Amino acid sequence: MSTTPVTQTHGTEHEAADPVEAVVHVVPVVLPVVGGLLMFLLAFIAIYVA
């Protein structure tokens, strides 16, 4: 007898996790913090060189 196995694909598919969507909710916090640190770092370098 040749019977083909029935594969059920409905409900077993999972979407791949999107790395962009995982980071987007953190961007409004991280961007100003990193910008502030960069400003202080550049000011410190300018004072040190002068």
Rank of each mutant, 00 (worst) to 15 (best):
H14P: 00
V29M: 07
V33C: 08
H10N: 10
L38R: 06
T3R: 13
T7Y: 14
F40K: 05
A17I: 11
V23I: 14
Q8T: 03
A46W: 13
L42H: 06
V23G: 04
L37G: 14
V29A: 10
A16R: 04
S2L: 15
A22H: 04
V24S: 05
D18A: 00
E15C: 01
E13M: 05
Q8S: 07
E13L: 06
L37T: 04
H10T: 13
V23Y: 10
F40N: 10
A16C: 01
Q8W: 01
V30L: 15
T12M: 00
F40C: 12
E13S: 04
L38D: 02
V30N: 02
P32M: 07
G11L: 01
V30M: 11
V24A: 12
Q8M: 03
I47L: 15
V26W: 15
H25I: 04
V30H: 05
L37M: 11
L37K: 00
V6K: 09
P19K: 02
V6D: 07
V24Q: 05
S2W: 06
T12W: 00
A50P: 06
V6N: 06
V49I: 14
L31T: 15
V29Y: 08
Y48L: 13
V23A: 13
V6Q: 08
V49Q: 13
V49E: 14
H14F: 01
P28W: 07
H25F: 04
L31Y: 11
V24I: 07
G36C: 12
L37W: 04
M1P: 04
G11R: 01
G11A: 01
L41A: 15
M39D: 03
P32T: 07
V20A: 06
V6E: 09
M1V: 09
T3K: 14
T7R: 11
Q8F: 04
P32R: 08
F40S: 11
V34H: 05
T4D: 14
T7H: 11
M39G: 11
L41R: 13
L42P: 02
A16G: 01
V33M: 09
F44Y: 12
V34A: 15
S2Y: 11
V49H: 12
T12Y: 00
P19R: 02
I47A: 14
T7I: 14
A46E: 11
E13N: 04
P19Q: 01
V6W: 02
G11K: 00
V24H: 01
A22M: 09
H14I: 01
G36I: 12
Q8K: 03
H14D: 00
P5H: 03
G36W: 05
H25S: 13
T3Y: 12
Q8A: 05
A17Y: 02
A50D: 09
L38E: 05
V24C: 00
Q8G: 02
A22G: 05
A16V: 04
I45C: 07
L37R: 03
L31H: 10
A46F: 12
V26G: 08
